[in-house]
Simulated scan of single mutants.
Amino acid sequence: MMMKQSSFSFSVILLFLLHCTTTLAQPAAAPAVPAGPTAAPPPGPIVTLTPPPLGAPIPSGPINVIRILEQAGRFTLFIRLLKATTVIDQIEHQLNNTNGRMTIFAPTDSAFSTLSSGTLNSLTDPQKESLIQFHVLSSYIAQSQFQTASNPLRTNAGDNSRYRYQLNATSYSNSINISTGITNASVSAVIYSDGQLAVYQVDKVLLPWEIFGSKPPATAPAPAPIAPALAPGKPKKVKPAPIAVTPVNDDTTKVDASGAASLMTMQNVVFFFAVMVAPIIFS
């Protein structure tokens, strides 16, 4: 009886030890992490390939044209010329200090690569500045407004008459063509548009006639008018020159008149003597 009780007690103790060993061997559960807010994605680039929808908020802060072109990633040469000619200073001053409106036609790097070798290096500094100003309009033209834009467009290069800085835009159903008389380019993308500034990508450098075109020949002066020839057989009438008359003293005129009267009387006497008296005397 004593042995049965000892065996039972030993079994209970053994089962208790096995239970404790199993419990201690299990890994502790990881503490619960409170759910936090989802991290916001990084802001997207401001560069767009289509115009922003109407009513979209305009980004705050000054407009940075260089940043817009840099984010597009294909306007390295155009950016370099904007900085080298200080045209970028004029653009950003007009946009940010005077609330002006602008349209920029930006040629891509591949557009510059189509120019003949040495084209840009052959230009003087004023010509380079005029070339870049030729790509800038001091007015905002939305993509849909090219259909009603008045040609030629007025660029910052100045005189838009023929053989100078003439720029014409023609809008079709799905494209916009830009012509300078030398270059025919297409607007291939809308880089930026916010109602104040529009930046359009063009596939060619816009070459103005004033710098790259042949000048028209100078107009010859008009010949002097030729006097009409006289009809044959008709002598030319010459108006006689007036004869100057010297005034004569009245007394001298009277003496001359009386002397002439006396001379005529003597002539009559001699004539009468010769005709009537002489034949009688000598007969």
Rank of each mutant, 00 (worst) to 15 (best):
H93L: 02
D109W: 04
T86Y: 02
L115G: 12
T23Y: 12
V136N: 10
N96K: 03
T265G: 15
S110E: 03
N177L: 07
D89L: 00
T114Y: 09
Y172C: 10
L18C: 06
P126C: 03
T85F: 14
V202W: 08
F146I: 04
A56F: 13
A106F: 07
P42S: 05
A84L: 06
N151H: 06
M2W: 05
P62E: 05
F271I: 09
R74Y: 03
T252E: 10
S214D: 03
S122D: 05
A224T: 09
K234F: 09
Y163F: 15
S173P: 00
L230N: 14
V275Y: 13
I281G: 11
S130M: 12
S110T: 15
P279L: 04
Y163L: 10
N249C: 01
V270A: 13
N64W: 00
P107E: 07
P279C: 11
V33I: 14
M1D: 15
F282V: 00
G118M: 04
R74C: 04
P217M: 02
S258E: 15
S258A: 09
F212Y: 08
G259T: 12
S122H: 08
P223C: 03
P34D: 01
F282R: 06
Q201N: 15
F8C: 13
S258T: 10
T50G: 00
Q133G: 06
W209M: 09
L15A: 14
S130L: 12
K237W: 05
I104G: 13
F282M: 06
Y163H: 14
L82A: 09
P228G: 05
V202F: 01
S171K: 13
V33P: 00
N99L: 12
L82D: 07
S130T: 03
S214H: 12
I104Q: 06
D203F: 13
Q166E: 10
P45V: 00
S9D: 03
E129T: 04
S113I: 09
I58V: 14
L17G: 13
F10A: 13
A185R: 08
S173F: 02
T114F: 11
Q94V: 14
T38S: 02
L54H: 08
T183Q: 14
L123A: 07
S11L: 14
A227S: 14
H93A: 12
P217S: 03
D256I: 05
L24A: 15
I226W: 02
A72I: 01
Q127K: 11
T170G: 09
A56Q: 08
Q267K: 15
P235R: 11
R101V: 12
D109E: 04
S262Y: 05
T170M: 12
F273D: 05
